[in-house]
Each structure stands twice: as structure tokens, then as C-alpha cells.
């Protein structure tokens, strides 16, 4: 029990330190841009593939139910709502938690156990600012952009399936898909993605930064980073949906 509480306290202190260091110069812009490239560009192919497949599969699965009620014309709207509100950000976050979160944790963990982080400290370089702040900012910036991209690709996948059945034009499909999407949906999706991006970055960095016990410890930290990020992403999804629904109906 004590170790759990100690872990929470350490995590809380780590987050506080991030907010403290993120707003105090010097800012390592070049490293932040490098990390955005690492997070963003290198996840693009996986997000494209997954987003497209999710769009196709979700459309395929929804069609029979809508056909039962004679509501196939609602398919683009349903897909639009599902992808923009939930699936786009969630799929992106889960992919990034697995790909980016694990890579951040493994990289920092290896640096920790091979004394590279201490080497930065003794060279009068703040490793927290250089390694942690830049990576967390990079995921916080990149994940919302990737989520937006994933939603777009998901809708494209959905259109591909719809087109194969009904030969609808892309313009009409997108018009219908966005007909029931409000500013609140896009805003809440963006906020959600920012929260997910921050979660992936901070958990990956926290687990890597405090890795110990050599290579075994690095493996353990990487595994914990992925599991904890995914758990928190689902938890945050539930909380944010509740808040957004509360705003929507009141």
C-alpha cells in the first residue's frame, strides 16, 4: 500500500515538475520539433492503415442494423459521429500508446540504466527539460493532429465501403457525415486528443525516467508505460464523454 501511495506521489511530483519546467526558458525548440517528427511522421503509416480499416469495418458492421430499420441513408451520419467523436481520437491514442509511449519509455529507460541521464546532469544540462519536456510537448502536439488525420482517413475508409454498395459521391458522403457534427464534437475531440497525447508522453517519460535494475527494468518500465497509458486513456474517455454530454444537454 505504501509503495502504491509513494508511486502516486512520485507521479504527481513528476507532473508538477513538467508544468514548472515547461514554461521556464530555455526552450529546446529543435528537440521538440525532432520529437514531433518522431511521434508524428513515424506513426503516420500505421494510423493511415488502421484508420482506413476501422472506417471500413465499422461501416460494414453498422449497415445490417440500419437496413433492418430502413435507415441506411443515416449511415454516413452515424459513421461521422462515431469516428469524429470517439473512434478517431481513441484509435490514434491507443496506437500511439503502443508505438510512441513504449518507445519513449524504452529510450529513457536505457538512457537511465546506462547513466546517460546522469551524464547530462554532470554536464550542466537539465535532462528533465531536454528529454521529458520536449517529448511530452511533442506527444501533446502531435496526437491531436494525428487524431484529426485518423478521423479523415476513417471516413475515407467508410466512403470506400459505402461507394462499393451505393456509388455515392465523396462530396455528398462527407456532407452527410458532417451534417450532425457540431463545433462541440470537434472541440471535445481535440481536447480529448490533447489529454491523450499528454498522458502518453508523461507516462512514457515517467516510467522510463525512473527505470532501474538494468535491462530487465527497462522492459518492465516499457510494459507498465503501455498498460498504464491505455488504462488511463479509457478512463479519460469515460470522464470526458460524461462532461461533454453534460455540456451538450444542459
Amino acid at each position: 500500500m505504501d509503495s502504491y501511495l509513494e508511486g502516486y506521489y512520485k507521479g504527481y511530483r513528476f507532473c508538477l515538475r513538467f508544468f514548472k519546467e515547461a514554461f521556464i526558458p530555455p526552450f529546446h525548440w529543435r528537440e521538440i520539433i525532432n520529437q514531433c517528427f518522431e511521434v508524428g511522421l513515424k506513426s503516420l503509416s500505421l494510423i493511415t492503415l488502421t484508420g482506413f480499416i476501422v472506417g471500413i469495418v465499422f461501416t460494414k458492421q453498422s449497415r445490417p442494423s440500419l437496413e433492418t430499420f430502413g435507415a441506411v441513408s443515416w449511415l454516413p451520419s452515424l459513421i461521422g459521429i462515431a469516428i469524429v467523436r470517439a473512434l478517431g481520437p481513441l484509435v490514434t491514442a491507443l496506437i500511439c500508446a503502443g508505438k510512441v509511449g513504449s518507445s519513449i519509455s524504452a529510450e529513457l529507460g536505457s538512457m537511465k540504466v546506462t547513466e546517460q541521464i546522469e551524464a547530462m546532469e554532470v554536464s550542466a544540462i537539465n535532462p528533465f527539460k531536454y528529454l521529458v519536456v520536449s517529448r511530452v510537448l511533442a506527444t501533446t502536439i502531435s496526437v491531436p493532429i494525428l487524431a484529426l488525420y485518423c478521423s479523415f482517413i476513417g471516413l475515407l475508409g467508410s466512403y470506400y465501403n459505402v461507394y462499393s454498395e451505393e456509388a455515392t459521391s465523396l462530396a455528398i458522403f462527407y456532407k452527410n457525415a458532417f451534417s450532425n457534427i457540431s463545433f462541440l464534437d470537434i472541440f471535445s475531440s481535440s481536447v480529448k486528443s490533447i489529454v491523450y497525447g499528454f498522458t502518453i508522453g508523461i507516462i512514457g517519460c515517467y516510467k522510463g525516467y525512473y527505470a532501474s535494475q538494468g535491462t530487465r527494468g527497462v522492459g518492465k518500465a516499457t510494459n507498465q508505460a503501455v498498460v498504464l497509458s491505455m488504462f488511463l486513456i479509457f478512463f479519460e474517455e469515460v470522464v470526458i464523454v460524461q462532461i461533454v454530454n453534460w455540456i451538450r444537454y444542459f
Binding site: 536505457s110 538512457m111 546506462t114 547513466e115 546517460q116 546522469e118 551524464a119 546532469e121 554532470v122 554536464s123 550542466a124 537539465n126
Partner: peptide
């Protein structure tokens, strides 16, 4: 203050600690 002092100290690590 610590950083200023560390600029005068060189530390050679057992495993070199080069940035991979």
C-alpha cells in the same frame, strides 16, 4: 548555482555513458 559548478567538473563514467 549547481550547473555553474558542474561546468568546472568533468565526470568520466564507468561505462562511458556516451549518448547512443
Amino acid at each position: 548555482e549547481m550547473d555553474a559548478l558542474r561546468l568546472h567538473i568533468g565526470f568520466s563514467f564507468q561505462n562511458s555513458a556516451l549518448y547512443d
